[in-house]
Simulated assay, not measured.
Amino acid sequence: MQPLKTSAAQLVAAARARIEEIETPDLIAMVDDPDVVIVDLRDPRERQRTGYIPGAFHAPRGMIEFWVDPESPYHKDVFAQEGKKYVFHCASGWRSALTVATLQDMGFAAAHLKDGFSAWEKHGGPVARDGDAA
């Protein structure tokens, strides 16, 4: 295999240099803010295994550009809300950094949870699991 021109770590570092990163305690403080939409990019199996942020919208990474684009047949209305702050997250902040950089390139304003869901749990952020009583 030929060496890559750019490593995954370099892509993440470049993305992080140009996007808004939200620290975990700051997002925990915003979790009940109706003007904040938290978007979980993780695979469904990750969510089942580790839980998820209550109220987070699940948007698997592979579809996000299409779900955000209002001209796409796959567009989701959740991404067309005026006046909302969108904060994306994954497990460790790598996928969400790349996602937010891509969305920024598309003209969609968003931020990401800097250290991901693993830091969310460590900081005592609320976690829901399928089957939790409502």
Score class of each variant (00 low, 15 high):
1 M>R: 05
1 M>G: 06
1 M>F: 02
2 Q>P: 15
3 P>L: 14
3 P>C: 13
4 L>A: 08
4 L>H: 03
4 L>E: 05
4 L>D: 11
5 K>H: 10
5 K>R: 12
7 S>D: 05
8 A>R: 12
8 A>S: 12
8 A>L: 15
9 A>E: 13
10 Q>S: 06
11 L>Q: 06
13 A>Y: 01
14 A>F: 01
16 R>G: 07
21 E>N: 15
21 E>M: 15
25 P>W: 09
25 P>M: 04
27 L>E: 11
29 A>V: 00
30 M>H: 08
30 M>I: 05
31 V>M: 04
32 D>P: 01
33 D>Q: 00
34 P>L: 02
34 P>T: 08
35 D>E: 12
35 D>K: 07
36 V>A: 00
37 V>P: 01
39 V>Y: 07
40 D>R: 09
41 L>C: 10
41 L>K: 11
42 R>P: 07
43 D>L: 03
44 P>S: 13
45 R>D: 03
45 R>F: 05
46 E>V: 15
46 E>D: 15
47 R>G: 02
48 Q>E: 15
48 Q>V: 14
49 R>A: 14
50 T>E: 00
51 G>Q: 02
52 Y>A: 11
53 I>C: 02
53 I>T: 03
54 P>F: 14
55 G>H: 09
57 F>L: 14
58 H>T: 11
58 H>D: 13
61 R>H: 08
61 R>D: 06
61 R>P: 02
62 G>F: 08
64 I>A: 13
64 I>F: 07
64 I>C: 05
65 E>R: 02
65 E>M: 08
67 W>C: 12
69 D>F: 10
70 P>W: 10
70 P>S: 04
71 E>H: 07
71 E>Y: 13
72 S>A: 13
73 P>C: 06
76 K>N: 14
76 K>G: 09
76 K>Q: 12
81 Q>K: 11
84 K>W: 07
84 K>F: 11
85 K>L: 07
85 K>W: 01
87 V>L: 02
88 F>N: 08
88 F>T: 02
88 F>C: 10
89 H>D: 07
89 H>I: 12
90 C>G: 10
91 A>S: 10
93 G>V: 04
93 G>I: 08
94 W>S: 10
95 R>S: 11
96 S>T: 04
96 S>I: 08
96 S>C: 13
100 V>F: 00
101 A>G: 11
102 T>E: 12
102 T>Q: 14
104 Q>H: 08
104 Q>K: 13
107 G>V: 08
107 G>W: 00
108 F>M: 03
109 A>R: 03
110 A>K: 01
110 A>V: 10
110 A>Y: 06
111 A>I: 03
113 L>F: 02
113 L>K: 09
114 K>Q: 14
114 K>A: 14
118 S>K: 13
118 S>H: 03
118 S>D: 02
120 W>K: 00
120 W>D: 15
122 K>I: 09
122 K>H: 01
123 H>N: 15
123 H>L: 08
125 G>Q: 00
128 A>R: 01
129 R>E: 08
130 D>S: 11
131 G>N: 00
132 D>Y: 09
133 A>N: 05
133 A>S: 09
133 A>H: 05
